[in-house]
Design a protein around this nucleic acid. Structure first.
Length: 619
DNA sequence: ATAGGGTTAG
């Protein structure tokens, strides 16, 4: 028997859906209803998709009613389409009601719900719960299910759950799916375990650009910048073309380790080859941030100016970058420009603004911005903003006001904010407040070496050596563990030269020491005197047993001097805060050698020029 | 047929 030709009304309906004419298709749908006709499931599915594309919630519900009105046997396929529609509309409860009412659920139905809960806020537990329920229901999860549920495992902050899901994926033979693999790598990275992700990566025989992006991004996010960049190079060598996400992650790795030369190469690659990449907002934001964090606000500003579209991230990165590099006036000017014709500032922007005020000692302006944040920009002051204010007041020597502000906070102060105040005590040599503040920090973080170090250095700065001894004794008694040794590095072409005090393994150490001695003798003539006693007691200065002549920053500066190119500043990065003697050293060298030196320490930048530092000797 | 993975600012 030949199939009957569909009824003209059905034909008309199908035609309108095909033409993506939603209003007319909806009219035709009610004709179908009136005549008790039913179209092909595919046409209904296409109509549902049309509703999704047009964000037509009301029409979507009507289609739902129509599909369910007939006495025709329900189709799981169509219900799945409706599920997807409700999910795309963000109507999770409607999706769940339909899901619960479905007479049959296949792997797509389950996966749609698992994925929906995995994406939604605060429902990751439900996502994982559904995965287990579907197994109990005898429906085997597939690669779609696993790649979705991994996101939920990250959000749930349950590393054990992540391992269990990983095991399940292996059991079902799905680990080699590129989607599952990249989701696994990313999930491990986001849970702070890029090493586990790397193991998954290494078992890979054939991958795609997403898998590479996951592992490169994973290392970059976790501060393992060298590994990220090594894989970035290897990816290109293997013949994969990098995408915007690859370049963004690679740039972030350059940002983390201050590898401006490498970052600049990636940037020029972006400009030269990728018209799409060159327009990519996120990528351009990463470029701006990279130049800022490498200490070149000029290049960051140029990249920022060339951007065709800028969002709140672009502006915030540039404002904070100027502020961190000691250009507070420019940062605040840019902020005023943003208020005039940029996006609305958010809480991150305001951190940059307050940081700029604190850096420039603009107490009144900072107060004003802080007090008006809520009314002007609808930003509630958070810990970071209070931190900036404590820094601002502390720098100005208004320690008691800073203490009062902390005590008035509506959120509980954390160790970071107390440490900021402790830093201010150190600069202003207020040992009695320092003792009280250190006590507060140790209540919160009993093993925090930073508190002991700062307190000890406060005593040392006030030349109260008995206090230094007392702190050291307390550290010994409590068995506080030592932190990472200080390390400074310099980027040259495409490689890094790293220095640790007392480590003379660099092949050019002889000429570096020669250069260092030459610098000492020149700045000595200019009046530099090492404060031997202070340096001896400075706990921030790594490996005190070594002479402070050989602190890692000094080695790095001397090395960079042997390679210096006329007109180019010397750039050094340090993993900890820079010590007072090295700071004085760099100031003097910048003066007698007539060369700019930029040191990025763990918290801020120091731009040395002509014997002065952009930080105003406060850090 | 319907469901899935990577990227930016403090």
């Amino acid at each position: 028997m030949r199939p009957l030709k569909p009824h003209p009304i059905i034909q008309h309906f199908t035609q309108l859906v095909r033409m993506k004419d939603l209003p007319s298709a909806m009219n035709a749908l009610s004709s179908l209803d009136n005549h008790g006709l039913r179209a092909d499931p595919v046409a209904y599915a296409d109509l549902v998709k049309l509703c999704i594309a047009n964000r037509a919630v009301r029409q979507g519900r009507l289609v739902h009613l129509h599909i369910h009105a007939d006495a025709v046997p329900p189709e799981t396929f169509l219900d799945n389409n409706l599920l997807n529609m409700y999910v795309k509309f963000g109507l999770l409860d409607d999706a769940r009601a339909l899901f619960d009412a479905m007479p049959e659920r296949n792997v797509v139905s389950w996966t749609t719900m698992v994925s929906a809960y995995a994406r939604a806020r605060a429902s990751s537990e439900e996502s994982v719960k559904l995965l287990n329920l579907m197994r109990r229901d005898g429906v085997a999860p597939n690669m779609f299910t696993y790649s979705s549920v991994l996101r939920a495992a990250v959000a749930a902050r349950e590393p054990r759950m992540l391992g269990q899901i990983h095991c399940g994926a292996i059991k079902h033979g799905l680990e080699s799916d590129v989607f599952v693999r990249s989701a696994l790598i990313d999930a491990y990275a986001k849970s702070g375990d890029p090493g586990d992700g790397f193991r998954v990566f290494n078992e890979m025989e054939t991958g795609d650009v997403f898998v590479w992006n996951s592992i490169i991004g994973g290392f970059a996010q976790n501060g393992r910048c060298d590994e990220a960049l090594r894989l970035f190079v290897e990816m290109k060598r293997t013949g994969f073309r990098s995408s915007q996400a690859t370049l963004t992650s690679a740039l972030r790795a350059c940002t983390g380790s201050a590898r401006m030369e490498m970052g600049r190469q990636i940037h020029s690659h972006v400009v030269k080859f990728g018209s799409a990449a060159a327009r990519d907002l996120i990528l351009n934001n990463a470029v701006v941030d990279m130049y800022c964090k490498c200490g070149s606000t000029d290049e960051a500003g140029a990249a920022f100016a060339r951007m065709r579209v800028r969002d709140v991230v672009s502006w915030s990165a540039m404002i904070a970058g100027l502020a961190q590099n000691g250009r507070s006036g420019d940062a605040l000017e840019l902020f005023e420009l943003m208020r005039e014709n940029g996006p609305r500032p958010n809480h991150v922007t305001m951190v940059g603004v307050l940081f700029a005020c604190s850096h420039a000692g603009l107490v009144d302006e900072g107060r004003l911005y802080f007090d008006s944040m809520r009314t002007l920009f609808d930003v509630k002051p958070g810990r970071e903003h209070y931190g900036c204010m404590v820094d601002l007041l502390g720098r100005a020597g208004r320690l008691n006001e800073a203490l009062k502000l902390i005590e008035e906070m509506e959120i509980a102060p954390d160790g970071v904010i107390w440490r900021t105040l402790l830093g201010a005590c150190k600069v202003h040599k207020n040992t009695s407040l320092a003792k009280r503040v250190a006590h507060r920090i140790l209540e919160l973080e009993p093993d925090d070496e930073g508190a002991y170090v700062l307190l000890s250095n406060t005593f040392a700065g006030a030349r109260r050596w008995e206090g230094v001894e007392m702190v050291r004794g307390a550290m010994r008694d409590r068995g506080v563990k030592k932190r990472d040794p200080g390390c400074s590095w310099v980027e040259e072409e495409m490689r890094i030269h790293a220095f640790v005090a007392g480590d003379d393994s660099h092949p050019e150490m002889e000429s570096i020491i020669g250069e260092l001695n030459r610098l000492f003798s020149r700045i000595g003539d200019a009046g530099y005197v090492a404060d031997a006693e202070l340096a001896l007691h400075d706990m921030e200065a790594e490996q005190r047993e070594e002479s402070m002549r050989y602190h890692s920053e000094k080695l790095a500066v001397a090395f960079a001097m042997t390679r210096a190119v006329a007109g180019k500043p010397i750039r050094v990065v340090k993993n900890l805060r820079t010590c007072g003697d090295c700071h004085a050293f760099a100031k003097m060298v910048s003066m007698v050698e007539g060369r700019d030196i930029v040191i990025r320490d763990a918290v801020r930048f120091h731009h040395f020029r002509g014997g002065a530092c952009s930080c105003g000797d406060y850090w």
